[in-house]
Amino acid sequence: MAGFLLIVIAALFFPGVIIRTKSIASGRKGPGVFQPLKDIAVMLRKGSVFSNTTGIMFRMAPAVALATVVVAMLLLPFAENKALISFEGDFIFFAYLLALGKFFMIIGALDTGSSFQGMGASREALFSMIVEPAFFVLLATFAMFTGYTSFSVIFNHFYITGNDYVLIYSIIGAYLFVQIAMVENSRLPVDDPKTHLELTMVHEVMILDHSGFDKALIHTGTYLKFAIYGSLIYNLIVPAGWNTILKIVMFFVVQALFAVVIGITESFRARNKMNKNPKYILTLTSVALIAFMVILILTEKLV
């Protein structure tokens, strides 16, 4: 339960921190931390415009995506507090559930019959699907490292395995989760949310036609997803045995750092060339495989 609530709280601040970082980095005054929430409030007040072409799939997609994110949140632990739903192999469910949300967003985009949205859908489908192996290989590494197969237990045993090289895994794991989060949430360097040309968009062009309530759902889902990955990173970095107050503070520090990293990346880096993206994403799988090789060495299976 603690994990669920903390993720919700972190999600409130997360996009604001990214925005603040970006405006400070570019020397602008910029909007406040709560601007994204205010935007959502505005969207909730507004009515909606639907395309004549669209049908029920377009209208359902944002709700399905948000529902998958909410259920995915139930699977995440906070330090030694078990997740609300925790079972062996829950990360398989986690990954496939988020994929279900993606599935609906993609067909929602295709429902509009617009070539732009088709383009975005095709790109998003490819990018977010070839990132799956990286996630699974990374979790396999953790399973091998700790000997367990559920988020809650893996993270609880992460620092008490007695293995001195645990830091390697925290670092590689955190790095990969950051990268996977960037791909999953369509941020730089895979996609640039602030681009103004539809031809170069990925996620933004997919949701061009959504308005009002549906758009608010999509944004809520994205913010929650950021906080979900932030909480995964937190669980890797901070040992579960620490003092509770310290852990909660650390949770928000990690989330804020994550947001700042995203903000800084987006301020100082250009988006990848579109056809270089698959290679970039598949590189993440190779990094995960290297992490796996390292564990083979550490467990003295590979000399």
Partner: peptide
Amino acid sequence: RAVETGPTWG
């Protein structure tokens, strides 16, 4: 809320 329909954004 006011719900309208229109063409897909082109």
